[in-house]
Design a protein around this nucleic acid. Structure first.
Lengths: 164, 164
DNA sequence: TATGAATACTTGAGCAGTCAAGTACTTTTA
DNA sequence: TAAAAGTACTTGACTGCTCAAGTATTCATA
């Protein structure tokens, strides 16, 4: 029966998350014409400052695949809120940055999100626990990288390091 | 800055939920060939006992639209884990029930989910808070039903009442 | 230094959901 | 009791994601 309680908790957690996400998504798309995913992308870009961010890191930051980021970024570039430039030393990478227009859109969107969140009483739900849970879940699933199979040539001078 | 902290908490919550859902979905589809949505549908059907459940109530229970339930139920019927019969007094409704094969699949799937959850330390995250949050979020968004616009002819004898 | 492996990104195909509109039926009300 | 309104479900068109495969590039190594 305790088993059931824990599963119920998880089911409720998932349900709550879905509702919050849908609510924020609606608010954003109605008032600013962007989706919640796009909002998260803009936020991740802003978090990287003036450095450009690679697609893969963006994907990691917002919980999408690189493929999804490629597709999501295109319209954002088209409307001029995101710009892409080449990495000067690694031609494979294209680094995305927030334009001034993008920064403005983001700050508008942040207000929308804050308003949306006002209706949601999160107090009592500890951020620490959630972060711990997140870290736990972000661990590699299996095959814990037996040899030195670490990301090879990440360049400290330009790839983002703290877009979370 | 407190504003930011709360938004961060929500963002982390959504992230955690997405990771858990993906993990369970993978586990279920690899071992039992069903998605997490399908699992939730089966569970909702089981919760209704022998009574059939209407599409709309199923949708409400699992957080999908009636449209999505219609589409999701079709393959489940095809493989024989769900059966549909007509409501005897309201020809609009089709009532879904779990077949014995469906009940068996569900109990297998429940084991898979329980195993998947074992890796997730949920302790410290109170179910009560989550449920309160869920209730809050489930409230009608706006236009609180000004006249007596309540669900009309819900039949106590067959429509489900506790499939949650 | 040539070759194989890893990495960054893009693209094609497919899937699972949404919304809007349509059908069939039931209830309300004038 | 006929018309209007509401409800249950389905369908068509679309979106936003995924995975798998392909291209271009860089790193590692024999």
């Amino acid at each position: 029966m305790n088993e059931t309680t824990r599963e119920d908790a998880v089911l409720v957690l998932l349900d709550v998350a879905a509702r919050i996400e849908r609510r924020l998504d609606n608010a954003l798309s109605m008032t600013r014409g962007i989706s919640f995913s796009e909002y998260r992308l803009l936020k991740a870009l802003a978090g990287a400052g003036t450095r450009g961010v690679m697609r893969v890191d963006l994907a990691e930051a917002v919980g999408l695949t690189a493929s999804a980021v490629t597709r999501a970024l295109r319209p954002l570039e088209k409307i001029g809120v995101v710009a892409t430039e080449k990495h000067e030393r690694d031609a494979r990478c294209s680094l995305a940055t927030l334009t001034p227009a993008g920064a403005e859109l983001l700050s508008d969107a942040e207000r929308v999100v804050a308003d949306g969140l006002d209706a949601i009483p999160m107090k009592g739900l500890s951020l620490e626990r959630l972060v711990a849970l997140q870290a736990e879940l972000a661990k590699p699933r299996q095959a814990p990288a037996r040899r030195g199979m670490i990301r090879a040539h990440r360049d400290p001078t330009s790839g983002q390091e703290g877009a979370s």
